[in-house]
């Protein structure tokens, strides 16, 4: 694992996430959100989970980001997030970050290097999905169908 790649991806991801959380123009923030997920996918590639990285790019950058942009365009009345910043939220987020950082840095057993592994192929992922994880897979299929129908019913025209 390359530490230069790690630092570059970490800076890209966190800068894009900070931009998505703070930019006033909604469209700019939505594009920063897509950038964040490209960075997270790059982390998955760096960690040797190529299939999850590809799924992340397809699902988030391909589908969810487009959904968000469409929703912004459909609710065009307030395209800017005005109003004073909420300092209480920032203080809570910083406190949670401090707590997590303290816990991570205090746990000495986490300071380990990655063991060498043989690459996880898509064939192996498919094998496991169709044998050990076949019931979870069916449940996710049912959940996605239910979510599709639910989303359609929610946005249908209300009968007057």
């Amino acid at each position: 694992m390359n530490s230069i790649a790690f630092v570059a991806i970490a800076i890209l991801t966190l800068a894009a996430a900070l931009a998505a959380a703070t930019l006033q123009k909604l469209m700019h923030a939505a594009l920063s959100f897509a950038m964040t997920f490209v960075g997270v996918a790059a982390f998955f590639f760096l960690l040797g989970a190529e299939f999850v990285g590809l799924v992340q790019v397809f699902v988030y950058v391909g589908a969810v980001a487009v959904l968000i942009v469409f929703t912004i365009l459909l609710t065009r009345r307030d395209v800017e997030d005005t109003g004073r910043p909420n300092w209480g939220g920032a203080i809570i987020a910083i406190a949670v970050f401090g707590g997590l950082l303290w816990a991570i840095l205090k746990t000495q057993t986490l300071a380990i290097a990655a063991p060498p592994i043989e690459p996880l192929t898509v064939k192996r992922v498919g094998d496991v999905l169709m044998t050990d994880y076949v019931w979870p897979l069916q449940c996710v299929g049912l959940l996605l169908t239910a979510a599709l129908i639910g989303a359609l019913i929610l946005v249908m025209e209300e009968k007057r």
Binding site: M1, F6, A17, G88, I92, A93, F97, I104, L110, A114
Partner: peptide, 26 residues
């Protein structure tokens, strides 16, 4: 090479930024 700790710190930062967005955006 990056250790597990560094990945956990990045993910904790990402989580906190998400929490910041949830709590401060309207």
């Amino acid at each position: 090479t990056p250790t597990l700790q560094l990945f956990l710190i990045v993910s904790a930062t990402l989580f906190s930024i998400g929490l910041l967005a949830v709590l401060s955006r309207r």
